[in-house]
Design a protein around this nucleic acid. Structure first.
Lengths: 331, 331
DNA sequence: CGTTATGAGTGTAACGATTCGCGATGTGGC
DNA sequence: GCCACATCGCGAATCGTTACACTCATAACG
């Protein structure tokens, strides 16, 4: 086996406690002793056992992250934000993906419990959060990275889906478009529902009948966006513009449309949602609604660490993340 | 505090041993008792403490993943591959990013030791692997996700960088291009060096002087590719074609060039490397060298678990991942 | 000189689970 | 009536570390 604290203690002719102190509260031990212990430890290749350490003082130096998926630029940016903060706080990231499934996400919540100091979670269905923490007796701090029902005493972040989609659609209307289609995301997604609502509200307000517009289903992937683009091409008449519920699908759709000789934005204007990094490098660059994705990761993580370090439990807060219309060349 | 195994034992009127047996070697306890214990455990919300369990039988159910960065479609796909396998094996992923720094990556290697059952690592400099595992007395299985020096007894995967870059460049030459620039990645990257070598070899073989071609530096990001594109526009004469050391930079460069009214592929042909998911959805779609990125993650993880479960230490193998030229519309 | 502080270090009991050896039952078969 | 077997309890050890309550010397002080 590997070398333990007692081996070092014996070799350095001190007690295990002293060795432990050297590595933790080094101010409590004489500098000579300290040096001797460190030398011996290095020579023997001693590495404190993280697991034992965790068991002993109840901290794992790890935060759990539950996301619908571990890949793609959206989640990727969230992870980057969390990673940044976690490294500063000397914590590790335990990433678990729920594959857009509610049950998997609850399973992860349960089984991560006990191996992390706190949890960052993004669910697909907001209503699924109802009583979740009580139900599974979660006793570590939890921050939801998407909107919890406001009545729940959970920390959460809320993306302004409705307002964003409204702004995007309104922008398309202002550009003179009347026939404006939509590409939807996964049907159970709360974000998608809210975005659709915003889209419909804008149309309605402009005297355009939302129910007369082309609606195409997608699943947030580029591939599904591409497929959506092909479906648009098959329509009797192309819409003037399309609002896509996320950027990835918008990019996929633009690709299909352009292959079908549709010029963007001349023949059809396209707007997306999220403002993922790639959105500004498409041709034409993509008009979209900026969501501070990286910030979401950062701030959620910061909140979590603040809770972890707090002596008193803090009052849960629901933070709203503002969205912003970014007009680029696709509209 | 949370409910322990002894609490459950007391409530179910059995011994702690029995409760432990129920959750581990359930065949040793009567089915009636088992059911009773499970019911009580559920009712009380008992979750075995993962940390204590790990300490006890020396397994953490966790694998460590060290990558240059946790985001972007390339690393993202690797993570997806690993995640898939890890979930099957009921293991968690502890992700640590080295920010393209050698020292950070070694620090991660050290500090992850003891909290994981195995490690998957991707370094930027292959020579940095020399003796790494011995030096830090790593005693868990390790798989390198990029090429280790062949002489080292490490498990590793090797991307055919040279052959890939060679094929891409040759393809550009076959298309009739003579002036073929290159966009480089981070200077210390082993992959970049090999890709550049392949590029130069192809040029040389076709009687084209590699030293007379435009060389632009990048750092693998879309932003740096965009900047590279602008630099190309500033040249006295545009090259006929450009080979970019990865797709992200190719995408950025295309964006800048197209904004400068350069038509692709008519005025300039562009080839990338990696075949990240987005590569097929650009306009024009990107000719590139496919690297089985997702498979890399999968196979590295599979290898790792095979080592973790193996009774005898296995003989290290170096696996070569073949690359493939994917011709699309950008050339 | 006796009393207190203070610094340096020790011993031991947790932390929560697993595991082992053994022993104590009870049951059924022959 | 005896034996094998299944089921379960009990105590103790183990995993490696940290926290708590001490001891022991030396210095400082009035």
């Amino acid at each position: 086996m590997s070398v333990t604290i007692r081996d070092v203690a014996k070799a350095a002719d001190v007690s295990a406690t002293t060795v432990s102190r050297v590595f933790n509260h080094s101010d409590l031990v004489h500098s000579d002793t300290q040096e001797r212990v460190r030398n011996v430890a290095n020579r023997m290749g001693y590495r404190p056992n993280a697991t034992a350490r965790s068991l002993s003082h109840g901290r794992t130096q790890t935060v759990g992250v539950i996301l619908p998926a571990p890949h793609g630029e959206f989640f990727s940016e969230i992870i980057r934000g969390i990673d940044e903060v976690a490294q500063e706080a000397e914590h590790y990231m335990l990433i678990s993906s729920s594959h857009y499934s509610l049950s998997e996400s609850e399973a992860a919540l349960q089984s991560l419990q006990g191996r992390v100091d706190g949890l960052l979670i993004m669910t697909i269905q907001a209503d699924a959060q109802r009583g979740l923490l009580d139900e599974y007796a979660i006793d570590v701090p939890v921050v939801f990275m998407n909107n919890a029902s406001e009545s729940l005493p959970y920390n959460s972040f809320k993306i302004e889906n409705r307002a964003g989609a409204y702004a995007a659609t309104q922008h398309l209307i202002e550009r003179g478009h009347r026939r404006i289609g939509i590409i939807l995301g996964p049907p159970h997604s709360h974000d998608v529902r809210e975005r659709r609502t915003g889209y419909r509200a804008a149309l309605h307000e402009a005297g355009i009948n939302p129910d007369a517009q082309p609606v195409i289903e997608g699943d947030f992937t580029q591939a599904s966006g591409y497929e959506a683009g092909r479906q648009l091409l098959d329509l009797d008449a192309l819409p003037d513009a399309v609002f896509s519920c996320n950027d990835y699908m918008a990019i996929g759709a633009m690709s299909a449309l352009q292959k079908g000789d549709v010029r963007i934005p001349t023949d059809l204007a396209m707007a997306g949602f999220d403002d993922i990094p790639s959105a500004q490098y498409t041709t034409p660059s993509l008009t979209t609604i900026r969501v501070p994705v990286y910030d979401l990761g950062r701030r959620a993580a910061e909140r979590l660490f603040s809770m972890i370090h707090a002596a008193e439990p803090e009052r849960p807060r629901q933070t709203v993340l503002p969205t912003e219309l970014i007009v680029r060349a696709s509209t």
